[in-house]
C-alpha cells in the first residue's frame, strides 16, 4: 500500500513555509500543485488500487478552486482513496459549512500551518512518517 501526501496551493510563500515545516518530519519532498486541475490530472494518472492520498487543499485558487476539485474527485469516484485536509486563510463560516458536505474532508484548518497544528493531526503525522 502506498500513501501519498499532496499539497495544493497557489501561494509559493505558503508552499515554502510548509516545506520548511514538513522537513522536520520527513526527508522526502512533498508533491506540490498550483491549482486543483494540476492535482486532479496527477491523481487521475497515478491512482491505483494500492494508493491512498492525503491532500492539503487550499480553497481559493485559479483555474480550479478547492471546491471544484472536490466535485471532480466525487465525479471520478475517488472519494474512498482520497482524504482531504482543507487548509485555508478564509475565515468565512460558509466554507466550513460546505466542507461538511464532503465525507472525505477530514479536517478544516485555518492557515498558517504550524508545528503545533501538525502534531494535533495524527493522520497527517502518519502520512509524513510514511513518505520516507
Amino acid at each position: 500500500m502506498t500513501y501519498r501526501l499532496l499539497q495544493v496551493d497557489d501561494d509559493p510563500v505558503i508552499l515554502f513555509l510548509h516545506n520548511k515545516l514538513f522537513s522536520k518530519y520527513t526527508n522526502s519532498k512533498i508533491e506540490q500543485f498550483k491549482n486543483g486541475r494540476l492535482a486532479l490530472d496527477y491523481i487521475l494518472i497515478d491512482n491505483g488500487p494500492d494508493i491512498s492520498y492525503l491532500l492539503l487543499l487550499d480553497i481559493n485558487m485559479p483555474v480550479m478552486n478547492g471546491w471544484e476539485f472536490m466535485d471532480e474527485i466525487c465525479n471520478h469516484g475517488l472519494e474512498n482513496s482520497t482524504s482531504v485536509i482543507i487548509l485555508t486563510s478564509s475565515a468565512d463560516c460558509t466554507d466550513l459549512d460546505k466542507s461538511k458536505s464532503f465525507a472525505n474532508i477530514v479536517h478544516f484548518i485555518q492557515k498558517p500551518l504550524t508545528k503545533e497544528k501538525i502534531e494535533k493531526l495524527p493522520l497527517l503525522m502518519e502520512y509524513l512518517a510514511l513518505q520516507d
Partner: peptide
C-alpha cells in the same frame, strides 16, 4: 468588505504569521 477581509486580507496576514513563526 466581509469577503475581502475573510479571503483577500487574510492571505497576506497568514503569510506574515507563517514567515514570522519561521
Amino acid at each position: 468588505i466581509g469577503w475581502m477581509q475573510s479571503h483577500e486580507l487574510r492571505a497576506p496576514l497568514v503569510r506574515l504569521m507563517g514567515l514570522i513563526n519561521l
